[in-house]
Design a protein around this nucleic acid. Structure first.
Lengths: 160, 160
DNA sequence: ACAAAAAAGTTGACGGATCAACTAAATGGT
DNA sequence: ACCATTTAGTTGATCCGTCAACTTTTTTGT
């Protein structure tokens, strides 16, 4: 049951950093690679891509809804949207029921760039997922769920 | 075999972002939590902690060796070391064989702070690893290995 | 031995992420 | 209906991560 014996044979990376550290490195590499692909294929940033994906998936979504669904920082969403408006990648449409908010939509230009980036992104995603067996994928996702839960519990305990 | 059918039932998060996106969020949360703990327990930053861990593990290590082993950015290592010197957390000792480089060591103050942060960090690490079964841990690490490999292959292919 | 290449470290620039303060609009309890 | 609270979005400050340019020193090939 105790987790201490898992990796006590220290090779290069000490116990204390295994999970955090490995995830951190993978994340950095994944991000850098995605950013590079997006820049090369469509000249857009990773933040912009993520906004596009949310619009594509949910259609006419507001910044607040994006924040709720993704946990992105609302400041950053605001700035990214601002940039995308200036570049003519999206347009906003004021909501009638709520004067504060507006829904986001593709422009033709924005949609074009999004489509331009998609094949490479899709290929990459397929290659990444394809490198794992079905079982590995499944276990990895449940493991990530559990890690997120464990983090929340740590947070609660340390606040008690 | 095809990876497309894995998550084609789109719930909240579309296929294109599953891996990248989940990892990104977990990474961000893990980082934020670690940073908070380190600040509260010892008043040090995550970068400083990581340098400490490397010194602790390898003893009298040079910045270049840290970069090799961890893939940290050498610019950032340089800056972090500079800050730690100014705060008196470490000292450097010039190498005789190489005029360019220097090894890093704890000061008493630095070691004290490191020890001060350790229990909370260790507890957290144990809680994180402990939330997973042995099998999940093992599968997760091999999955991460495979993902890193897949990324490298994508990189090579796109350069061809 | 010497020129060319590689390695160690520093620094500047820039984008991304996080946090906090702020404005304005909507909601809810009484 | 009214005041307090919540929610949407903007903006500024700050830190971290990444990239590239540069200096100095060491290594390597001939």
């Amino acid at each position: 049951m105790s987790a201490d014996q898992v990796t006590d044979t220290e090779f290069d990376i000490p116990l204390q950093q295994m999970v955090t550290f490995r995830l951190s490195r993978i994340h950095a590499k994944l991000n850098a690679q995605a950013a590079r692909i997006l820049k090369e294929t469509a000249g857009i940033s990773l933040s912009q891509w993520r906004i596009f994906v949310m619009i594509e998936t949910h259609g006419k979504i507001t910044p607040a809804q994006i924040v709720k669904r993704t946990d992105f920082d609302k400041g950053q969403v605001s700035r990214t949207v601002k940039g995308m408006l200036k570049e003519g990648l999206i347009v906003v449409e004021g909501s009638e029921s709520d004067q504060r908010s507006h829904t986001l939509e593709f422009t033709d230009k924005g949609y074009g760039l999004f489509q331009q980036a998609r094949p490479a992104m899709r290929t990459r995603q397929t290659a990444l997922l394809g490198s794992l067996t079905a079982n590995e994928r499944q276990v990895m996702f449940t493991a990530m769920d559990k890690l997120e839960l464990a983090m929340e519990q740590i947070e609660e305990e340390s606040r008690a």
